[in-house]
Design a protein around this nucleic acid. Structure first.
Lengths: 235, 235
DNA sequence: ACCTGAACACCGTTCAAGT
DNA sequence: ACCTGAACACCGTTCAAGT
């Protein structure tokens, strides 16, 4: 940040991929996805629009570069001494942090599996390690890991699609509910009634807790079966 | 509604919102999101591009109409006699079915909370009913419901972002893994090694199972606490 | 009431040219 | 090697006009 009139060189150092992506990310973070056009980006860089094409082949490459760049910020915490639950939580939080840091890019972060692939290796490695420790089978490790990633993606998306702040969709749901005949949607009304006025912090952690409880239950169940497959359980 | 007054152009019945949205959906389903332009849509309808603006104010309205239309297809199965787990599964599957039916629209289905709101009422009502039966507190009902929805959204997105068929991201991950130094990512290698050759059906159901196990565990735990809050557990 | 057509302000990208 | 500028084929949308 902090670029003002006092640039280091009024004569402009040469353009490069790095500088283009930095400007593109600033544009997206500050003015949203729709502000990112080749022409506007060029204006930001004080350069002819076509100059960009010398460094990056097309707009898709810019988007991909952005996703790659943001995922490169991901630092998976390696708390190997902690319980597997906390390790999963740490990975999920780190990943979710990326989305929070660049909300306007979330749709692409979540969509562009290709550009995220390198970072995904680290992320999955950390998850697989933790989940192996939980006692899951290889198949279940993969499934549970996918579940965590899908959840973070879905949650991040919801955070960003909602009108302004609140995660989940319940704010506008409530408004709509009040327009419906009062005998309809009793379950919704009961829950919203019980919760009225209470301030609910972000549900990210709670969702994660449910998932972790599920993993623990499945792991325990698998263990029981492995200990005494057909002879009955004597634990 | 209106009959053939004024301008039947070569046998066409008059344009209307319905016909425009139908054509738009066909365009998206068959040729992807990027094929949906006002001009191409008009060509499809054999009409001047500006004719569309008489029936729908702008392109955003078309997208919103599409999302609304697809969500209107949602029929939440009302298997009230079944176990709560099966009821949650049924809702999740119904919702997921929409995404599968219109993969090119998934990004918007998942993003446009506003247009989906009416259908979201029914969907959440069904989830809340089932989750209440599971014995969750109002707060937990809301959280668990959000978790299920976020998971379905995340899963649907992953299904669509991947290169071709497989859900999850593991196909390209594996290719990338083979390019890495062999001492790195041992957990990934172990899991993928164990799973090589086995054909893994879609993980949608397994992810759901983990979530359901988590909900059951949390409900059981809450019950235990409620039965004997400070006196210790004598179960 | 319903549709057309020209016009405007944008896009991404190609290609030839300038230094 | 790096950048410019004109040109092309598209966009979404406004506005005045036609029936």
């Amino acid at each position: 940040m902090g670029d003002k009139i006092g640039r280091p060189k009024a004569g402009q150092e040469p353009l490069n991929r790095e500088r283009i992506l930095a400007a593109a990310l600033r544009l997206v973070d500050e003015h949203g996805m729709e502000a990112l056009s080749m022409r506007r980006l060029a204006a930001e860089l004080k350069v002819d629009p076509m100059a960009i094409y010398y460094h990056l082949p097309n707009k898709r490459a810019i988007l991909a570069g952005l996703v790659e760049r943001v995922f490169a910020e991901l630092r998976v915490p390696s708390a190997k001494n902690k319980a597997w639950q906390d390790r999963v939580r740490a990975v999920a939080r780190a990943y979710h942090g990326l989305a929070k840091a660049h909300p306007n890019l979330v749709l692409y972060l979540v969509t562009d599996r290709e550009s995220a692939a390198v970072a995904a290796l680290e992320l999955n490695e950390a998850l697989y390690e933790a989940l192996a420790e939980a006692g899951l089978s290889p198949r279940m490790i993969m499934r549970a890991s996918d579940l965590v990633v899908d959840y973070v993606n879905g949650f991040a998306l919801a955070e960003v699609s909602g009108p302004v702040g609140q995660p989940g969709e319940w704010r506008e749901l409530l408004a709509l509910l009040n327009e419906q005949p009062p005998e309809q949607f009793p379950a919704l009304r009961h829950v919203f009634g019980s919760l009225a006025g209470k301030d609910l912090a972000s549900g990210f952690g709670t969702g994660l807790d449910i998932i972790l409880a599920g993993i623990a239950a499945i792991a325990a169940n698998a263990n029981k079966e492995r200990v005494s497959p057909e002879e009955g359980n004597r634990g």
